[in-house]
Design a binder for these strands. Structure first.
Lengths: 245, 245
DNA sequence: AAGTGGTCTAGACCACTTG
DNA sequence: AAGTGGTCTAGACCACTTT
């Protein structure tokens, strides 16, 4: 566990907003890393020189935003991107009967390419900037269900290789977080129905032109900064995209 | 505006959870109605005989859950289901360029029928219980885009008629709330891609078998009680289903 | 038993909206 | 100017986890 030191002053309207910014800054800088525990509340309130209620207010919001995790009796830690977290927040595919299963991922292609305007726009970078493109097939109960095309900017993932990608021990987002200090906090998805094109049809073992879901996701890290653009084709013959309102 | 009286004791683990339950009870009973303002915080904390911080804690959670609305300098009121609220929480359809527009709704059919097992299961009622079934076509910029099939249990909407339904002044959920004391707080949606069947194809002016979205929504009121089951068919040729993670 | 977060108190003062 | 919610303080005590 890292030693914890509060970073210097960060502007903001309210005191507790300042505290939040300081905590986020320390996470971004890697002063406290995913899985690390923060000092306890009394200690933190002394370091930041605020009342404990104010400190708690800041921590509460970070917990609500998914940045921190609190456990009564144990302490407050920086959220770790693990399988459970992934299934809860990012994997919206469930069987007709509502059961949800962690998919197995097979990587088909890994390439370093120049971004076309479409993915560049989604990632908020310039057309022609270098990105990694990864193609995956996700299977549930050994049946291929999802075909993913992932675009991530090279400058945020310096040194990424196909081997590193495939040898990851947990989810893709855990890899981003552990090896590249990129914590995916949320995203926006655009879903529509399309006729399945040839490549996806072959991979998902369905006929050409079958109705499938197309899901475009922009995943972002701190400050709503785009970190990944992902286009998924989903065979919804036996599965649904499930979301809460 | 109604006079406000706190209801009697409601069990719960924490004090602020009790306060929440009491407030919800008063809303369910119609003691305070949508749009009504509650007494101010100091007054409420006296009535419930708790510190103002505890009262605020309860109110904060109800605001987070979408039950109450607070406005600094004005007061705290019971959330009104209006167009803005509907567009924000329940209408997930946006044009390719991201613009969102309030749809115009045309009612095609209004019938009182007995629930088949499928919709009964979704609504948590017995097969054969009486429900209203309403068929609507929703248009954006005068082009039909969505075909809705709505099922609502009769016992929650006693006295509903086609005329009342069509003559509503705002959204369908506003009608539920104003005329039947049914406040829709949230829901779960299951989305998949299907081949468009004849009726929907005719109504949406697309060819038979075109890939379209099917969205099944169970909308619930207090205590996660199902209040409405809705099946939507969406032509996503020019629109997306957009959601945040 | 010691240490953590969770709840609750009883105020003070600030920022915003309205008459 | 009066009334509202928003922020902040400086504690006390409770519930839970770990050693």
């Amino acid at each position: 566990m890292s030693e914890y030191f509060a970073s210097s002053f960060v502007k903001g309207n309210s005191l507790y907003i300042n505290i939040k910014s300081k905590l986020i800054e320390d996470i971004k800088q890697g002063v406290v890393r995913p899985g690390d525990f923060l000092p306890n509340e009394r200690e933190l309130s002394k370091r930041f020189d605020v009342a404990i209620g104010t400190l708690r207010r800041a921590v509460e919001e970070l917990v609500a935003e998914g940045v921190l995790v609190r456990q009564q009796g144990r302490g407050t830690s920086v959220r770790l991107q693990d399988r459970d977290q992934f299934m809860f927040q990012f994997f919206k595919i469930a069987a007709r009967d509502g059961t949800r299963e962690f998919p197995s991922v097979k990587t088909l292609e890994f390439a370093k390419i120049r971004a076309k305007s479409y993915e560049a726009k989604a990632l908020g970078i310039q057309t022609g900037q270098t990105v990694f493109r990864v193609l995956n097939v996700l299977s549930i109960s050994n049946k291929p269900v999802i075909f993913d095309k992932i675009f991530i900017p090279e400058f945020m993932f310096l040194g990424l290789s196909r081997k590193k990608f495939e040898d990851r021990s947990s989810t893709i987002y855990a890899l981003y977080q552990n090896d590249f200090c990129v914590t995916v906090l949320g995203g926006v998805e655009r879903v529509r129905a399309i006729d399945c094109e040839k490549k996806a049809a072959d991979l998902l073992n369905i006929e050409l032109g079958h109705s499938v879901l197309s899901i475009e996701r922009v995943a972002y890290t701190f400050g709503q900064k785009p970190a990944e653009f992902r286009v998924s084709v989903v065979n919804t013959s036996h599965f649904d995209y499930v979301t809460s309102l």
